[in-house]
């Protein structure tokens, strides 16, 4: 048995999502942009690690990097990386779909707060 962890990781929490801008499209784009910004920061930190290690060990060749072709295992790992990456940055689209598919898990939180009184 396997968990579909890529999809599960981006799952929507129970309760309706608030939108703060008048046009939800703005919010959608903002969320995608912020996720991309995060991934850029991750990449930057990784490159920083690599550069420091290479510098420390005294080896660095730009040509080798340009000429690199992945073998089958590496190619599979890289493609999987892309799949995970895309699901992460398009989280909000997945969650809006989940809201549409499961209205029962998408109750207005203010309404739930009202019901709390008798729980």
């Amino acid at each position: 048995m396997e968990l579909d962890y890529i999809n599960l990781a981006s799952a929507k929490a129970k309760g309706q999502r608030p939108y703060f801008f008048d046009d939800p499209a703005v919010e959608r784009v903002l969320n995608i942009t912020m996720a991309v910004a995060g991934e850029l920061a991750v990449m930057h930190e990784r490159l920083d690690t690599i550069e420091r290690l290479l510098e420390y060990k005294g080896l660095l060749s730009r040509n080798e990097i340009d000429a690199f072709v992945p073998d089958d295992t590496a190619a599979e790992q890289r493609q999987r990386w892309h799949a995970e990456y895309i699901a992460r940055i398009l989280r909000i689209v997945q969650q809006e779909m989940e809201a549409l598919a499961h209205p029962e898990l998408n109750q207005d939180v203010a309404e739930i707060a009202e019901q709390m009184a008798s729980m």
Binding site: L3, A9, P18, Y19, N31, G38
Partner: peptide
């Protein structure tokens, strides 16, 4: 301004869940 801050804060909270879940669920077993 409040809309922008709120939208960013909400997004940050969602991203935090996504980041934590992606690393824990891949090693759930």
């Amino acid at each position: 301004h409040y809309q922008t801050w709120s939208a960013l804060r909400r997004s940050a909270m969602e991203m935090r869940q996504q980041a934590g879940r992606s690393l824990t669920l891949r090693q759930a077993y």
